[in-house]
Amino acid sequence: MSNAEKAQRLTEQINKRYELLKAIKAGSTSDIELPKSLNKLREWDNQKLGIERIGSPSSFTTNHKLHGNTIKRIDSLLKELLKPRKPRRKTTKTELKRVNNNLDAALQNAANKYVQYASEIERLKVETALLKSKEQGLEEEIAELKSALNVAREENLALRKKLIQYESKPRSKVTRLDFGMGDLNAD
């Protein structure tokens, strides 16, 4: 096998390991027993997964010129996947009662708010109906006042016409008429 073929095969094996670790982390691959160290991962051989042993230890290091960054990512993923998961702690009765009481209080609060808002909505509906009725009454009053104003304008116009006719008649020369009992101080 030529050096170019060996380099190509090394790159493929490193990339296969990296992609496999990413798939395990993402949850798309499971039930795989992972090696416990970076060195064991280099020596890992799993024909089923297409993983072959990498013979040269110097080719699988984090300071390798060509593959160092990928090996660092592989190391980081491996450590993350091998980290023991914290066991889920059991919920105690006391905690469940506290959560239940909190939920009950929140539900009661929501019910109270609902009643409060429902009564406010009803009050606003009644107020809206009263305002609409008042608005309708005012509109009718405006119509009546407009009608009365039109009648008053017509009367005013008729009176002006009569006044004009009266003023255009010749006037009498009598300026004062005395209808009375005469001179009261004549005695």
Rank of each mutant, 00 (worst) to 15 (best):
N63K: 13
N112P: 00
L130T: 15
L107C: 00
I24A: 06
V115S: 04
L96K: 13
Q108I: 08
K113E: 07
T70V: 07
I14H: 02
L77W: 00
H67M: 01
K25E: 14
P87A: 09
D45T: 12
H64I: 01
Q116C: 03
Y117K: 12
S59F: 08
L78S: 00
R9N: 13
Q8R: 14
W44Q: 04
N39F: 08
P84C: 01
I51E: 09
G137E: 13
H64K: 01
K93F: 14
S119I: 05
I32H: 03
N69P: 04
T91C: 06
K134E: 13
Q116V: 04
K65V: 03
A105K: 14
N101S: 14
A23R: 12
N46D: 12
K16P: 05
R88V: 12
D31E: 15
K113C: 00
N39H: 10
D45R: 12
E33I: 15
R123Y: 08
I14W: 04
I14F: 02
P35Y: 05
S37Y: 04
T29Q: 15
K125A: 13
R85Y: 07
E95Q: 12
K132M: 14
K79S: 01
V99F: 09
E127K: 10
L81R: 00
K65H: 08
A111S: 09
L78T: 01
P57D: 08
K16Q: 10
R42Y: 00
R89W: 02
T29R: 14
V126Y: 07
R53H: 10
L81C: 00
A110M: 02
K86C: 04
D104I: 09
G27A: 05
L81I: 01
K132P: 07
R89L: 08
T128D: 11
N46H: 08
I74K: 00
G27C: 05
P57W: 06
S133A: 12
K22T: 09
Y18G: 05
E122R: 09
Q116F: 07
E122Q: 11
L96D: 15
I74E: 00
K48A: 12
I32D: 02
G50A: 07
N15T: 13
I121M: 12
